[in-house]
Amino acid sequence: MDTAIQEKVHSTFPRLNQPAPTFEVETTHGTLRLEDFQGSWVILFSHPADFTPVCTTEFVAFAQIAPELKRRGVELLGLSIDSTYSHIAWVRNIEKNFDVKIPFPIIADLNKDVATLYGMVMPGESKTETSRCVFVIDPKGLIRAMIYYPLTTGRNTQEILRLIDALQTSDKHSVATPANWKPGEKVIVPPPKTTEEAEIRMTAGYETPDWYFSKKSL
């Protein structure tokens, strides 16, 4: 690829199935590098600002799914353009007011290094805050999913859990998952690529309404 185009691509948003941009950052758990998480799934998520109401509800919700994520080999990593001191004060405030301990590190991205690298600032919304972004990074360090929500709208952490289940199921069984899929439901077998495979598919024992559309139980 032409160098100028390459630079343009890298200066915009990360891409699915591309390596997640690396970083070394100060967090509420000390200095961390992205490579420290190698071998684990990571949910890197940004919030607009500490001590704001929607973000507080989100942090409580993320803390509540943290044990479920841990069981799935997923680490959470928060981020906002605030200082470590602000993060510490907010985390303590959440524990005091909501009786919820925040178990994951939060990046203090005061100079917007990571926010810029991942395209977390949406100038149309705010030039000084990160939007509600979620990056799912797999154990090999590839970006596998991205979600962007506006400042006004808190994220659905159950959907994030569902997304992790779907990605891990796809990886384990080489299948896809249909709309609104939940663990235990039938999955989609990739469509055949040749007429011969299509012929075989019709008699392969799957639930097959048509040659391109096959479902099976795991």
Partner: peptide, 12 residues
């Protein structure tokens, strides 16, 4: 302790 914290701590 989570592995990421061990990696970071041992590095230090």
């Amino acid at each position: 302790t989570p592995l990421y914290r061990i990696r970071s701590g041992v590095r230090e």
